[in-house]
Design a protein around this nucleic acid. Structure first.
Length: 419
RNA sequence: GCGGCUCUGGUGAAGUGGUUAACACGUCGGAUUGUGGCUCCGAUAUGCGUGGGUUCGAUUCCCACGAGUCGCCCCA
């Protein structure tokens, strides 16, 4: 059926666009305040970028990418997220040359072949932020604060900030081994998914919902016990700074990110009323990613937020500003000559940036007046036979119903005075 | 990718194994011919997600597929 858009995609209709513009405006506002600059990267990249950056074994890469071979026999993938692209652009354009810390933000479509659900689409939109080139935990705190305040500024309640640390290449493997060792003892009690996660990514067992309530979960080794000094201090500092900024957070030792590039700080902001797809924003530090993609070792941190999900949350709380109709004038004509006259007037008004429109179906005057009323225009500018002969226009104020006839040359000035 | 539920016009929906598929909103037109928001009148689904099957006959029963939704998974 060609009248249906592909599964998992959605049109953004005129009546919905105010919400989108509202969010995008807020994004640009807060990013300006925090000193992040906008970047736009291609919608598609070499497949390898994501395989290397996100990790081959992740669900995103192994089963959710839109990958195809182009006519030049290249393997191309529609971006499933924007961090890898941003890092690629950072390297390719040598943005690091400008200074130590490069701060970027983006807004755009991402693509993931998932089963569609409320708050989960195949083409969806994210706003995200990346800070490249600084390992200081203050940047972690800044990024988390940006995400948090962004959502708070929108007026959202029931937000929950969760943070965790996932260690670094020095300490995570130790923790990993510990987990494998621990969970192996309970192998038979693990759910099917977790059995396979045991070898591949044992950290993910921690946030498994199926096994969440089983007894052995409570005694699973905590990452704190394995953290190296650097990671421990880093995490402590992030907490200190967040507390200083007056933001409440929960440490969730089961919070694990699904993308391989994360190190140290991981965080997520949830909006619980959303149900299964409750994560509004999530991100963390990725100190190994730049190197993985082929640059010099460079620390980085960022997050992404799902715009559709934010919109759902805003709708729930009735926080989307109402659309504004700002039509100044609706031209009503009677007769062929008047229509020409009206069209000419229409054009002149628009040249002066007056929002004006008229009926193009040559309908009855009554029908045109009805339309004028519905359009929300301030004035109906009526042109009939008499007006044509007198070079005049009858101006009717649609709110007060007052009307008077004035010269056609004075109409623009009159409308502008009252707009 | 797995499981549950749902699928009637522009919208909200009622309904039945068989002659015109209620009702409401919306839209369009009209109520003596140059004027709106109220009221009144009229029109508005050749069609009941798609494709098969059962049946003399299906929108109503069955199957498959599709889409939506909820949960799982994943994540934003």
């Amino acid at each position: 059926m060609i009248t249906n858009a592909p599964r998992g995609t959605k049109d953004i209709l005129p009546e919905q666009i105010t919400g989108w513009n509202y969010i995008e405006d807020e994004v640009r506002k807060i990013c300006a305040a925090y000193g992040y600059e906008e970047i736009r990267t291609p919608i598609f990249e070499h497949t390898e970028l994501f395989q290397r950056g996100i990790g081959e074994t992740t669900d995103v890469v192994s089963k959710e990418m839109y990958t195809f071979t182009d006519r030049g026999n290249r393997s191309i993938t529609l971006r499933p997220e924007n961090t890898a692209s941003a890092v690629r652009a950072y390297l390719q354009n040598k943005l690091y040359a400008a200074g130590n810390l490069v701060k970027l933000f983006y807004i755009g479509s991402m693509f993931r072949y998932d089963r569609p659900q409320a708050g989960r689409l195949r083409e969806f939109h994210q706003f995200g932020v990346e800070a490249l080139g600084e390992k200081n935990p203050a940047v972690d705190a800044e990024i988390i604060l940006l995400a948090w305040n962004f959502l708070k500024n929108l007026g959202l309640d029931e937000l929950e900030l969760k943070i965790n640390t996932v260690g670094c290449p020095a300490c995570r493997p130790v923790y990993r081994q510990k987990l494998i060792h621990y969970f192996s003892e309970y192998h038979d009690e693990l759910c099917g998914d977790c059995k396979s996660r045991l070898e591949k990514n044992p950290l993910r067992i921690l946030d498994c919902k199926v096994d969440a309530d089983k007894d052995f979960m409570d005694d699973a080794p905590k990452i704190e016990t394995c953290l190296c000094d650097e990671c421990r201090e880093h995490f402590a500092r992030v907490q200190e700074l967040l507390t200083a900024a007056g933001v409440e957070f929960k440490i969730d030792s089961r919070l694990v990110r699904g993308l391989d590039y994360y190190t140290k700080t991981a965080f997520e902001i949830q909006y619980t009323p959303l149900g299964a797809q409750s994560a509004l924003a999530g991100g963390g530090r990725y100190d190994g990613l730049v190197e993985e993609i082929g640059g010099a070792p460079t620390p980085g941190i960022g997050f992404a937020a799902g715009i559709e999900r934010i919109l759902i949350a805003l709708e729930k709380q009735n926080l989307i500003p109402a659309a504004q109709k700002n039509l100044d004038a609706f031209i009503v004509t009677a007769g062929r000559e008047a229509e020409v006259c009206g069209f000419k007037l229409l054009n002149n008004l628009r040249k002066k940036n007056i929002a004006a429109t008229m009926d193009f179906a040559s309908r009855s005057m009554k029908a045109q007046m009805k339309q004028a009323a519905k359009s929300g225009a301030k004035f109906a500018l009526i042109i009939g036979e008499d007006e044509v002969n007198e070079n005049a226009v009858t101006v009717k104020n649609l709110e007060t119903s007052a009307q008077n006839k004035i010269s056609i040359d004075e109409v623009a000035a009159m409308v502008m005075r009252n707009a």
